[in-house]
Write a protein that binds this DNA or RNA. Structure first.
Lengths: 217, 217
DNA sequence: TGGCATTATGGCAGTAAGTGACGCGCGACG
DNA sequence: CGTCGCGCGTCACTTACTGCCATAATGCCA
């Protein structure tokens, strides 16, 4: 029995994701360098070495090309929350994960992170990019619900879970936007060392303290 | 002395808003009846009795035509929070405002509300409408910051205010989406009577209890 | 290893969203 | 009563995006 059911010469899911990310990288870079309006689909296609037609097969709109890269910013927070063991407080876990993240960082991943934050910051002026960012956050928020539900020992569609997920997503988003702004405006990168604490406090605050503590037992 | 300073035959701001709302009404109705993709700019223009060119003068994209109407859903919550007197708890104030809102409702406003919720619900399937909804909420959230700042007696750009604004906005959004879903799926409208309490509890929870109580003194 | 099925891709023509330019009409003001 | 400012319509134009068909690439199975 195969868990991943793909027939014929179908592209593997991981490969598809890689390709989308690659397109996203080039598109985001162009958006950053010359603005969204000044960047055409043809340019993106040429930059990534594909035909324009193929770009539109992988992305519905030009702006959405930025989503995968931009999503990695919040994805980092998502990974933390997903891998959050019950017996740890959020502060402890986030701090540990941050160290691991920094240790595992490659030159490329650093560039990606920087570029993603740039796009987020650019969203202040470019509505098109703002929607891409909001959509990415929206996607994260939807994935957040089951994670929080499991944390609280509630069914995923419980009416108390969704507001918590929304608030947590908002906290994550606000935090990322804050980082993006500070980084872009000359950047006091020193303050970013307290990231885990800030993030944990924001989530804790956003969920009224319901999400944050270690779970006994 | 004229407070609204307009020279020549300039369109007043209120008139401009009215026109945008009118366009939004027709566009949203068409989106609802036949889907976004099946609705062309020409159709919207014809429905509202303007030229297509004028539609694009008032809205940058087709989907954004839905924003003004859809924004009224959250705007209701915004109005409540904006007019929230310090000496009342959120529950008390929201309950009073809801009564007023129901009393002042006209046939048209009821239709508008219904249509707006329909568009919100439709956003689950139509990404284009989802972005419109998210943008509307985003706008509300930005306006929320100063309101919350004033409530807490903090400067608007305080680092504690923005997460609260984001979380409150998310709570508002989640609540509206919940209402939209229930209303669309056959609708237990009975439960909506507790709207003020739910909304207040959501905001309270989203801000860690910092926003919700009456302010003494 | 080699055929087969399935899918990703490229090229091209077509649709429709969105823009710039120009002229008209209308209401405001002297 | 002229003329000024501005919203609106018309038309030509650019470009994001889609269908369609041919072809190359890939995984499965003998």
């Amino acid at each position: 029995m195969t868990t991943t059911r793909r027939r014929g010469g179908a592209m593997s899911e991981v490969r598809r994701r890689r390709l989308r990310l690659e397109i996203s990288r080039e598109a985001s870079r162009l958006f950053w360098e010359q603005g969204v309006d000044a960047t055409s689909g043809d340019q993106i296609a040429e930059a990534v070495g594909l035909s324009t037609r193929t770009i539109w097969r992988h992305f519905r709109t030009k702006e959405s090309c930025a989503e995968p890269l931009v999503a990695r910013g919040v994805e980092w927070g998502m990974l933390i929350l997903r891998a959050w063991p019950p017996h740890l407080s959020l502060e402890e876990h986030a701090a540990a994960e941050r160290i691991r993240h920094v240790e595992e960082a490659t030159a490329d991943s650093v560039i990606d992170d920087r570029l993603a934050l740039g796009i987020v910051a650019l969203g202040d002026r470019e509505p098109a990019l703002r929607t891409a960012w909001l959509m990415a956050c929206d996607k994260v928020e939807r994935e957040l619900a089951p994670v929080i539900a499991r944390r609280l020992g509630l069914p995923a569609d419980d009416h108390r879970v969704l507001p918590h997920a929304a608030a947590t997503g908002a906290a994550l988003r606000a935090y990322n936007e804050h980082v993006a702004r500070t980084l872009l405006s000359g950047g006091d990168t020193q303050g970013l060392l307290h990231a885990p604490a800030h993030l944990a406090r924001a989530v804790r605050g956003a969920t009224g303290g319901a999400v944050g503590d270690a779970i006994a037992g």
